[in-house]
């Protein structure tokens, strides 16, 4: 199967600390790939480099074969790569439904003229956004809080909302940074089902996760980082029994 994302020799350091050190791997255009590793291993930094949130010191990022290494986040989003954040970044002044609607930005158009005069096409687009947002909120189990301000949602629901918002971009690859952190058991289960559904619909998923059960349940492929380096890459079963991985987690 072809790769949607190829990371080649990605490197990023902060002062003397090499947070991501010569990491290479590729993500197939279907299925769920997980990035695991101890705290401080460089997982979030790797995501930041891939998504363009910070620049790399070296290496190349290919998206569908195109070199997007120096693209800004909004340009990468336009190419179908969308991420969520380890520390949730919602638009606090907006309701849950409106947050999701912001995700339709790239798929819709219209500026001041459309806002002021609301021509028929703009109203139709708005109705469509309304409906699709409701569907996405349903997918992550947030229908009941659609009209609630994002700022007052419990933390677990904020995480789920961020995923729904990212999905509104209809990404071809979705990057999730520790989506299960702060979720209760029921929300976690809801999340696992949603991720499987997203993958089944044809979106490649790359996720950072601490919850090993979740990773073993839903990942097709696992990349293991330790001290910024890739130390293993394979199926969940293969990685679980890899001596280098066991050493990193136990040692």
């Amino acid at each position: 199967m072809s790769a949607i994302l190829e990371v080649k020799n990605a490197t990023r350091s902060f002062g003397g600390l090499v947070a991501v050190n010569d990491v290479s791997f590729s993500v197939p255009s279907r299925g769920v790939t997980a990035v695991i590793g101890p705290n401080g291993a460089g997982k979030t930094t790797l995501f930041n480099v891939i998504a363009g949130t910070i620049s790399a010191n070296g290496g190349t990022i290919l998206l569908n074969g195109e070199d997007v290494t120096d693209f800004k986040p909004e340009a990468k989003a336009a190419k179908g790569l969308v991420r969520t954040f380890q520390l949730v970044k919602l638009f606090q002044d907006l309701t849950a439904a409106e947050n999701v609607k912001v995700g339709f930005h790239l798929k819709t158009h219209g500026g001041l003229f459309a806002a002021l005069f609301q021509p028929a096409w703009a109203r139709a687009a708005e109705r469509n956004s309304e409906k699709t947002a409701a569907d996405l909120l349903d997918l992550v189990g947030l229908s009941k809080v659609a009209q609630t301000s994002a700022s007052i949602l419990p933390y677990g629901q904020q995480r789920l909302l961020e995923i729904a918002r990212a999905l509104a971009c209809q990404p071809s690859i979705l990057l999730l940074d520790e989506p299960a952190a702060g979720l209760n058991a029921e929300e976690s289960e809801r999340l696992a089902r949603a991720i499987r559904r997203i993958a089944a619909d044809g979106t490649a998923v790359l996720l950072i996760e601490h919850d090993m059960k979740l990773v073993m349940d839903i990942a097709d492929d696992v990349v293991v980082l330790d001290y910024g380096r890739k130390i293993a890459h394979g199926t969940p079963d293969a990685v679980r029994n890899d001596p280098a991985v066991l050493a990193a987690y136990l040692g």
Binding site: T53, E98, G103, A166
Partner: peptide, 20 residues
Amino acid sequence: SRLGRSFAAVAGSEEAAATL
């Protein structure tokens, strides 16, 4: 409107807005 939501997005988080 779409425009107003992009204002609110920039107000809420420039990083997240760019990501979308």
